[in-house]
Design a protein around this nucleic acid. Structure first.
Length: 503
RNA sequence: GCCCCGUUGGUCUAGCGGUUAUGACGCCGCCCUCUCAAGGCGGAGAUCGCCGGUUCGAAUCCGGUACGGGGUACCA
């Protein structure tokens, strides 16, 4: 297979990155971006950098930062360089790099590649409106581009504080997008942009390319929402080459499609489905979630004509080619996400399912913390009963609750009781209790034999009618794991007590 | 307004000039069965946004157009 590594320079190893802003809860679109960037780096044997872009003090917060780190670790997207692990290009939080940006901005100014602009918001607004009215692009018109020192001094005297704008060279901008192919922006449509606010704070437009350059990023995979800012970044890189920031090369860009929610809207932080932490709480496996996320815009190449959409991270890394990324937006489908997750659960050895289940049982307080050996053993014995029946780990908690719950807390679903434990059902339960009370050996086979003999052969009931009342009385629900196995695990005394309790 | 991106069953997706248009999720039916799942088998569901062109032949190439999305900030 031909390797379509689009390299800046073929001899240069790949360095990719993920650089979220710590605002709010981590969401799935973010995870998909991180996943693709990570998979790209790993596929090419390169490095993956994890940087935090917290330059907007009003929106960033520490809790969100902690969550980001936590969730990346949970997902298993490891990084070679970045926050928490360090590296040669740190620090990796932009809030700790302000001196770097100030220096770069000053050098840009000194080299005449950027300038101070004193326009007020109102002035800009007015000119923008005029431009639109005439059918011209509405970006900055360059009015303060060539101010004389005297003019600048006059504005300063008025008390105006300048922003720093980057001077866009007048030329067309073309770049070969890793997922979309060649994209061109005409010179007239990319205007001088602000890189430092009037209050001295650097903007994303400056900090992001600066750090990418300084950290040696060769490939930038990011959301398509910032596709149109790419020409500015490329222009900045060319300026960096002149002032000696970075190694003088420009990275390759690839713009990933949106992850959509309901309707034609991008999945937003407000959609409950977008909350990454929620998936962990609900019992999604990281490999299941990641598998589904990978399917949003990418697919494993077919082998001998056979397509497969359930795969592990190692397979993803092995096969990941950015060129296969589909450029159109994909809608997030929870039902399919759950189905894929269920497949991953079934792929796990049952012992491991039991291990992964433990924390969820502890959260539900069905098993103590620390867990005692008997409870852990019971969970291990019960895991095979739910292994094929769950799509999310938390579902096992509900299915096996009857085994772990204190007798005082055991409850029976009212609707199920009404249907299955009427007079006739109680008769069935009584017969079951009597048959089981005499049983010598308490194991699945003996329990099944005794129940069949008593209820099916003895009372002449159809199997589903025979076992329904027993199931409801003992497990509390019309729907449960396999009955005979469940009774064995529950034990004789608790089983008999529960049957007696409904009579 | 101007710029950019996108468009294959309900959803995700394969497809790179010749296929009865692939697979998955979901849905329906049947089998298995102590419930529910899982598994097996089968089914419905797409005139590949639209119009033109190139070609013996177009989902695939070209040109328009419509619709959706994004940008046009001292947000990212």
């Amino acid at each position: 297979m031909t390797d379509t590594v689009p390299a800046v320079d073929a001899s240069k190893p790949v360095v990719a990155r993920f650089c979220p802003s710590p605002t709010g809860n981590p969401h799935v679109g973010m995870a998909r971006t991180a996943l693709f960037s990570w998979a790209f780096a790993r596929h090419h044997g390169g490095k993956f950098v994890f940087r935090i872009e917290d330059t907007d003090a009003s929106r960033d917060n520490q809790e969100s930062y902690d969550l980001l780190v936590d969730v990346m670790r949970w997902l298993g997207l490891d990084w070679d360089e970045g926050v928490e692990v360090g590296g040669d290009h740190g620090p990796y939080r932009q809030s700790e790099r302000m001196d770097v940006y100030a220096d770069v901005a000053q050098r840009l100014l000194d080299a005449g590649l950027a300038y101070k602009a004193y326009d007020t918001a109102d002035e800009l607004e007015e000119r923008r409106e005029a431009a639109r009215a005439e059918g011209r692009p509405s970006g900055y018109d360059g009015l303060h581009r060539d101010l004389t020192p005297e003019q600048q001094a006059a504005y300063e005297a008025e008390g105006r504080k300048p922003v720093i704008r980057f001077k866009m060279p007048a030329k067309d901008w073309t770049f070969d997008d890793l997922v979309r192919g060649p994209i061109t922006f005409g010179a007239d449509n990319v205007q001088d942009f602000v890189i430092v606010r009037a209050n001295g704070q650097p903007l994303y437009t400056l900090t992001n390319p600066t750090d990418d350059a300084l950290m040696g990023i060769t490939h930038v995979l990011r959301g398509e929402d910032i596709l149109s800012s790419t020409p500015r970044q490329i222009a900045l890189y060319e300026a960096f080459a002149q002032i000696g920031v970075g190694d003088g090369s420009t990275p390759r860009f690839g713009h990933l499609p949106y992850v959509m929610g309901q309707g034609n809207r991008k999945l937003s932080k407000r959609d409950p489905e977008s909350n990454l932490l929620g998936y962990r709480e609900q019992g999604f496996l990281p490999e299941g979630l990641l598998n589904y996320l990978a399917l949003l815009g990418w697919s494993l190449p077919a082998v001998d004509g056979v397509e497969r959409d359930v795969f592990g991270l190692a397979e993803l890394v092995e096969a990941f080619e950015v060129s296969r990324v589909n450029p159109n937006p994909a809608r997030f489908d929870l039902a399919k996400c759950e189905a894929i997750n269920g497949d991953h659960i079934r792929l796990l050895p049952v012992e491991e399912v039991a291990e992964r289940l433990l924390p969820y049982f502890q959260t539900a307080e069905l098993i103590g913390t620390p867990a005692d050996d008997a409870q852990v053993a019971l969970l291990a014995a019960a895991a095979p009963l739910v292994h094929e029946r769950i799509a999310k780990l938390t579902e096992a908690v509900d299915m096996l609750r009857f085994l772990f719950v204190d007798d005082d807390d055991f409850t029976i679903d009212e609707a199920d009781a009404a249907k299955n434990l009427d007079e006739k059902g109680q008769g069935t339960a009584r017969a079951a209790r009597d048959a089981l009370a005499e049983l010598k050996t308490w194991d699945t086979a003996s329990i099944e034999a005794a129940l069949r003999a008593s209820l099916v052969d003895g009372l002449g009931l159809k199997p589903r009618l025979a076992f329904g009342p027993v199931r409801v009385a003992v497990t509390g629900s019309r729907i449960s794991p396999p009955l005979f196995e469940s009774l064995e695990l529950l034990g004789r005394s608790r089983t008999l007590a529960r049957l007696s309790a409904v009579l």
